[in-house]
């Protein structure tokens, strides 16, 4: 179910610019299926956490109002090229995914 996510981490001065693209349908639970007229069950990412070299850098909670295939960008000071970025997410069904990248 969980599809790969993509992380791009680059240094801009002394700040690491981290961009994450997650693959997820992000169903709010209020949308109706066009064919059956039934509500599509809610299925969205609830939590995203990120660490750089094991140190917490982001701890986010999301609702269904984040767009499909969520994009998330954030900036971390004090990181350096070669540091390891890890991003985890968990959705409301308990599905989870993890990915890592190296700051380049």
């Amino acid at each position: 179910m969980a599809q790969p996510m993509r992380i791009r981490a680059t240094m801009a001065g002394d700040v690491a610019d981290i961009k994450v693209l997650m693959n997820h349908p992000m169903e709010t639970g209020t949308r109706k299926d066009a064919k059956t007229g039934q509500l599509v069950p809610a299925h969205f990412i609830t939590e995203v956490t990120s660490t750089i070299n094991g140190k917490d850098v982001l701890n986010a909670e999301m609702g269904g109002a984040v767009s499909k295939n969520p994009f998330l960008g954030f900036k971390v000071k004090g990181a350096k090229a070669g540091d390891k970025v890890v991003v985890n997410w968990v959705d409301n069904t308990g599905d989870k995914n993890t990915a890592e990248a190296t700051i380049g």
């Binding site: 701890n59 767009s67 900036k75 000071k77």
Partner: peptide, 14 residues
């Protein structure tokens, strides 16, 4: 979005 110290006051999303 909870930002521990070291993370800049910046969030970009859709």
């Amino acid at each position: 979005f909870n930002l521990p110290s070291g993370t800049e006051g910046f969030i970009s999303t859709r």
